[in-house]
């Protein structure tokens, strides 16, 4: 695909109309860190891009007592600079911070990362751990989809022609709840996740885990919600046995491939390690939340 037309609408309705009226393929341009690379070459496949960064609601974030309403195209750099959001959803902000370099974070966004629907996207597990809801607006109205149902396969999701992800909604975490996101890469930065894990933990007064959410990434065609891993943690004080059981549950839930970034056996092992470590970090944070 080669970009032959660039549009910069100022309202969601206008953006939807560009997407539906284009005579050839049309795609939403958020940060562009995936789309611009993917659209290089192939001059016989024309593409219209619809830049949604000129729409205020797409790049804003609102944190209230009810939770967070995140504009999907807000750059990771802007998001990670928001200390108020980081205080409530540290794992989500960690995931945004881990997407690419500083330069890439200046463009990339949580919504763009989600809509690119790569199995290795960093935000997937963190969004799952935080019970994110995807608000989708299209030619036929608005609907809401839980994030774990948003991505349907490698590079595939529930968006249809003219649909735009217009908001990510997060409930306010309960008391003594916090989260963490960890990913494994060979270097310290710049790599695509070999495996990732987002964990949210709720503790009671004596440190027993009363609720948990575990999301894993890069180990299956889509990021996965692993209920068995959460169940292994709930009711425990996150002792070694519970953590080992959660790790094993994550390993069992995974179905990775071998590629240039890791082998099947390596990814299955490491995702368990990450779940264990992320759970401990989230629990430590939950004590003070």
């Amino acid at each position: 695909m080669a970009v032959v037309e660039y549009q910069s609408p100022t309202s969601v309705e206008e953006a939807i109309s560009f997407l539906t009226s284009s005579p050839h393929a049309a795609k939403v341009l958020a940060g562009g860190t995936d789309l611009i690379i993917q659209s290089k070459g192939k001059y016989d496949e024309p593409l219209t891009v619809v830049d949604i960064k000129g729409i205020a609601s797409m790049v804003d974030a609102e944190l209230t007592d009810d939770g967070l309403k995140l504009g999907p195209a807000m750059s990771c750099a802007r998001l990670t600079a928001r200390d108020d959001i980081k205080a409530v959803y540290p794992g989500l902000v960690e995931a945004a911070y881990l997407i690419g370099s500083t330069q890439v974070q200046g463009r990339a966004s949580v919504g763009g990362n989600l809509c690119n629907s790569s199995p290795a996207g960093d935000t997937g597990p963190a969004l799952i751990a935080n019970r994110a809801i995807c608000v989708i607006q299209g030619p036929n109205g608005t609907r809401e989809v839980p994030v774990e149902e948003f991505t349907t396969g490698v590079g595939q999701n529930v968006l249809e022609k003219g649909d735009i992800l217009v908001q990510l909604k997060f409930p306010r975490p309960a008391a003594r709840t916090s989260d963490a996101y960890l990913r494994f890469i060979p270097r310290t930065e710049m790599d695509i996740a070999v495996a990732g894990a987002g964990v949210s933990i709720t503790l009671d007064g004596d440190g027993t885990c009363t609720d948990a959410r575990v999301g894993i990434g890069a180990v299956a065609p889509t990021a996965l919600l692993v209920d068995a891993a959460a169940q292994a943690l709930i009711g425990t004080k996150l002792d070694d046995a519970a953590l080992a059981a959660a790790a094993q549950a994550a390993t069992d839930a995974s179905s990775p491939i071998t590629d240039r970034r890791g082998t099947i056996e390596y990814r299955r092992h490491v995702v368990g390690v990450l779940v264990k470590r992320a759970a401990l970090i989230a629990a430590e944070r939950a004590k003070g939340a």
Binding site: P186, R187, T188, E189, M190, D191, I192, R260, R261
Partner: peptide, 11 residues
């Protein structure tokens, strides 16, 4: 440079 992993400043 994404998957041919030369050392970074942070490495």
């Amino acid at each position: 440079f994404l998957d041919y992993r030369i050392p970074l400043a942070s490495d």
